[in-house]
Amino acid sequence: MEKIGLFGGTFDPLHIGHMILAEAVREAWKLEEIWFIPSHLPPHKEKASVSGRDRMEMVRESISQNDKFKVCDLELLRGDKSYTLKTVRELKERYPDKKFFFIIGGDMVESLGSWYHTEELMEEVSFVGVNRPGYSFGTDYPVSKVEIPPLSISSSEIRERMERNLTIRYMVPEPVYFYIKRKGLYEHE
Results as ranks from 00 to 15, higher is better:
residue 140 D to H: 06
residue 116 Y to V: 06
residue 16 I to A: 00
residue 119 E to D: 15
residue 73 D to Q: 03
residue 152 S to W: 08
residue 129 G to W: 02
residue 59 V to F: 02
residue 187 E to I: 13
residue 108 M to Y: 00
residue 90 E to W: 01
residue 124 E to I: 01
residue 163 E to H: 15
residue 182 R to M: 14
residue 90 E to M: 02
residue 78 R to F: 01
residue 40 H to N: 11
residue 92 K to D: 01
residue 175 P to A: 14
residue 144 S to L: 09
residue 152 S to H: 14
residue 57 E to T: 06
residue 42 P to T: 00
residue 187 E to R: 15
residue 171 M to G: 03
residue 9 G to C: 05
residue 70 K to F: 10
residue 150 P to Q: 11
residue 143 V to H: 09
residue 5 G to P: 07
residue 180 I to N: 08
residue 43 P to L: 05
residue 86 K to M: 00
residue 92 K to L: 04
residue 34 I to Y: 05
residue 68 K to Q: 14
residue 169 R to Y: 13
residue 66 N to L: 08
residue 176 V to I: 12
residue 140 D to Q: 13
residue 52 G to E: 02
residue 50 V to I: 15
residue 70 K to E: 02
residue 62 S to L: 08
residue 164 R to H: 13
residue 108 M to A: 14
residue 175 P to T: 11
residue 55 R to W: 05
residue 95 Y to L: 10
residue 46 E to T: 12
residue 90 E to A: 02
residue 97 D to E: 15
residue 80 D to Y: 07
residue 109 V to W: 08
residue 65 Q to A: 14
residue 66 N to Q: 10
residue 179 Y to M: 01
residue 49 S to H: 13
residue 182 R to V: 00
residue 152 S to V: 07
residue 41 L to P: 02
residue 102 F to C: 03
residue 81 K to L: 06
residue 41 L to Q: 11
residue 188 H to K: 15
residue 16 I to V: 13
residue 52 G to T: 03
residue 54 D to L: 03
residue 125 V to L: 03
residue 142 P to F: 07
residue 186 Y to V: 09
residue 2 E to Q: 14
residue 26 R to C: 10
residue 94 R to Q: 12
residue 69 F to V: 12
residue 188 H to F: 14
residue 138 G to V: 07
residue 89 R to H: 07
residue 3 K to S: 13
residue 84 T to N: 01
residue 46 E to P: 09
residue 138 G to F: 10
residue 46 E to D: 12
residue 139 T to M: 05
residue 147 E to L: 12
residue 51 S to T: 14
residue 150 P to S: 10
residue 16 I to C: 05
residue 131 N to V: 06
residue 156 S to W: 06
residue 170 Y to E: 09
residue 63 I to W: 06
residue 153 I to D: 05
residue 27 E to W: 07
residue 43 P to R: 06
residue 36 F to P: 03
residue 31 L to R: 11
residue 44 H to V: 02
residue 47 K to Y: 12
residue 157 E to H: 07
residue 58 M to L: 07
residue 95 Y to D: 03
residue 28 A to W: 01
residue 78 R to Q: 04
residue 183 K to G: 09
residue 32 E to T: 13
residue 91 L to E: 00
residue 94 R to G: 01
residue 184 G to R: 12
residue 9 G to W: 03
residue 71 V to M: 08
residue 32 E to S: 15
residue 85 L to S: 00
residue 124 E to P: 01
residue 119 E to A: 10
residue 187 E to A: 13
residue 138 G to Y: 12
residue 133 P to N: 07
residue 11 F to P: 04
residue 175 P to F: 13
residue 111 S to I: 06
residue 30 K to E: 13
residue 168 I to P: 04
residue 163 E to Y: 14
residue 103 I to W: 08
residue 123 E to S: 14
residue 114 S to A: 09
residue 128 V to Q: 12
residue 183 K to S: 11
residue 82 S to A: 05
residue 25 V to F: 09
residue 188 H to G: 11
residue 145 K to V: 10
residue 172 V to F: 09
residue 77 L to Y: 02
residue 26 R to Y: 09
residue 70 K to Y: 08
residue 51 S to Q: 08
residue 42 P to F: 05
residue 76 L to N: 04
residue 38 P to L: 00
residue 100 F to Y: 11
residue 158 I to K: 07
residue 76 L to K: 07
residue 22 A to R: 09
residue 40 H to F: 11
residue 186 Y to R: 09
residue 51 S to G: 08
residue 99 K to N: 13
residue 113 G to V: 03
